[in-house]
Amino acid sequence: MQIIRFAELKAEPWRNGGGVTREIARQGAADGGWDWRVSIADVAKAGDFSAFPGMERVLTVVEGELLLLTVDGAEQPLEKYRPFRFDGGAATVAKLPTGDIRDLNVITRTAAFKGYTSIIELSKKRAHPVFEGQLAVLLQGQATVRDSGTEPLELGRYDAVVGSDADSPEVLGRGFLAVVSLDPVTAGN
């Protein structure tokens, strides 16, 4: 079972100085770039988003009230825990009408992967499994994770659990969990 501790992730400043990103995980690509990346960003100032041509983004506000995104001229309000999908190469500008926010970013190479983010309310009675091709990020509350061969381990806020089909980790607790699914794109899809 693999847990990625948020407290151990290095904050990388953005090129435009508007915030920082902490990369949770990525999968490399043949061209030296990546096919997908999952990260948490702190947005402290309004401004342009970096363009990722050939990529698709799913952005979810996980802390703060509201993010106003203008994507290719169309304004889109993003409220907490409501994932929003958009073209990574689109001209994107952010406004912070209610102050700083933190977001969960899933970016996938369009021809290689499709990313999904689901927000799950945890239960103390029924564990939520995390399967192969998924990451589960504790957004709020208290939770433990275990697989069949281990004692439960405490999760901190924004800690991530890497999924597995062989011995699926299970998250149990109270609060909210983001489940990120990264599905390979096959010919014909």
Score class of each variant (00 low, 15 high):
R5Y: 07
R82W: 09
T92F: 04
H128D: 06
G89S: 01
I40P: 07
V106T: 11
G133N: 14
A44L: 07
T108F: 06
E56R: 08
Q27C: 14
R22Y: 05
P13R: 03
I40D: 09
R126E: 14
L177E: 08
T21I: 01
L177N: 03
A46M: 00
D42L: 05
Q142I: 03
G149E: 11
L172C: 04
D183W: 13
E154P: 04
N105P: 09
A29N: 11
I4F: 06
R82L: 14
R15M: 00
L182C: 10
D167R: 13
G64C: 07
K45S: 10
S39A: 12
K80G: 09
I3G: 08
G47M: 00
R5A: 08
G88D: 05
V162C: 13
R15A: 04
I4T: 06
I40H: 03
S181G: 12
G32P: 01
A127T: 03
A41Y: 02
W34H: 10
K114G: 11
K45W: 00
E65S: 14
P184C: 13
E12R: 11
D72R: 04
R5S: 10
A166T: 12
A178E: 08
A7L: 06
S181P: 05
R146H: 15
R37P: 07
D165R: 11
V58M: 02
I24T: 08
R85G: 01
W14Q: 00
Q142E: 15
E56K: 02
D48Q: 06
D183A: 14
R102S: 13
G149C: 06
L172S: 08
G141F: 05
T21C: 04
W14P: 00
D31P: 07
L138K: 05
L177S: 07
A187N: 09
A51Y: 00
G54L: 05
G32C: 02
L122V: 02
G32L: 02
P152V: 04
A112T: 12
R109K: 15
K10H: 13
T108M: 06
E132V: 11
G19E: 03
R174A: 14
A127K: 09
I3Y: 10
L177T: 05
P152S: 09
F86E: 05
G32E: 01
K10L: 12
T21V: 05
D100G: 05
G173R: 07
W14G: 00
A90V: 00
T186H: 15
P83Y: 03
N105Y: 04
V62P: 11
F52Q: 00
L66M: 14
V20Q: 02
R146Q: 13
Q142F: 08
R22M: 08
D35R: 12
T117Y: 04
D165C: 11
W36Y: 13
V71D: 07
V179Q: 12
R22C: 10
T21H: 04
P13E: 02
T117D: 10
A178P: 08
I3Q: 09
D167G: 10
F86R: 04
V62I: 15
F113E: 13
G175N: 12
W36K: 11
G33M: 04
V93E: 01
P13Q: 01
Q142K: 13
S148L: 11
A46L: 01
